[in-house]
């Protein structure tokens, strides 16, 4: 038992010695804290040191360029939701984040925190992966870039070292005819955890033919399942009902879901199929509107 040291570096430079210290002292990176503080209160996580990264300018904010979209890892989801341009470019990524918690929680919750909490049911990751997101990882020895899907390696575990945190996400700016969407299933209408979540990122040409696709599923395995086979099935089709039905059927066979207080194995498989069909439809409609 003891006190917890709290540090709030004002720059990446100031963070370096703290990250070095983090290699020796049990510590956690604090972004919005909407998972971490609850885990600390419940005694599940007991760090001796907290490094609050919200005050570092490079870690928050949204920049939308012609080639690349930059999203600070500690940008509150309420700020993402208020960005008209981010909504226009990556509606699915925004949908994933704006489903988390209540309005009050939205003011704190961040995409980096959601990803690093590494919950199999996290709402942020599926759409970020489907959008081809990359993470800029800052560490005491410098910076490296990894795809979003390489961050979570098991429930509650990430590939980041003790002296690293995610500084920002980078997404390729969607091309004309490309759009994304995210759907999750919960028994209520808010304040809940995904039983299954599915994201789709779809590109169509002027004839309505799907030219590229990425479909990802959350809460059906220890980490996000990337449904390459479903994507392959979609490319070259006009995303007609028969194709979508087949995609749903295929998706319902993916992953290794568990039975728990939030749903059974059978139920998760079923819902994965239904949501996959619906979310592809939504993404395809949006893609068509962006031609």
């Amino acid at each position: 038992m003891g006190s917890v040291q709290y540090h709030a570096p004002q720059s990446l430079e100031e963070a370096v010695p703290l990250l070095k210290e983090a290699q020796k002292t049990p510590s956690r990176i604090l972004a919005g804290g909407t998972d971490l503080l609850i885990q600390m209160r419940a005694g599940v996580k007991t760090p001796d040191m907290l490094i609050d990264i919200k005050k570092i300018p490079e870690v928050t904010g949204i920049e939308i360029g012609p080639e690349e979209i930059r999203l600070g890892a500690a940008t509150p989801s309420a700020v993402m939701d208020e960005s008209v341009e981010l909504h226009r470019q990556l509606p699915g990524v925004v949908e994933g984040m704006e489903l988390i918690g209540s309005t009050q929680v939205q003011g704190r919750a961040t995409p980096g925190g959601n990803l690093c909490n590494a919950s199999p049911a996290g709402d942020g990751a599926p759409a970020m992966i489907a959008a081809g997101g990359q993470c800029v990882v800052f560490g005491s020895n410098g910076v490296r870039t990894i795809p979003v899907e390489e961050v979570c390696i098991a429930p509650g575990r990430t590939s980041l070292a003790d002296d690293e945190f995610i500084q920002e996400f980078r997404f390729p700016t969607p091309k004309p005819g490309q759009a994304d969407a995210y759907l999750r299933f919960i028994p209520r209408n808010e304040m809940d955890i995904a039983v299954v979540g599915v994201a789709a990122n779809i590109t169509v040409d002027a004839s309505g033919t799907c030219t590229a696709a990425k479909v990802t599923l959350g809460a059906v395995g220890p980490t996000v399942v990337i449904a390459d086979k479903v994507a392959e099935l979609l490319v070259g089709t006009k995303l007609d009902d028969a194709t979508l039905a087949k995609a749903g059927e295929m998706a319902s066979g993916l992953g290794t879901p568990i039975s728990d207080k939030r749903g059974t194995v059978e139920f998760r498989h079923r819902i994965a199929g239904v949501l996959t069909r619906r979310v592809i439809q939504i993404a395809a409609t949006r893609a068509g509107e962006r031609l």
Partner: peptide, 16 residues
């Protein structure tokens, strides 16, 4: 008991 909080003990919320 597996659902020992209001997250998983699902009372309706206002928009339900």
């Amino acid at each position: 008991l597996q659902n020992f909080g209001f997250l998983d003990y699902r009372m309706p919320v206002a928009n339900d």
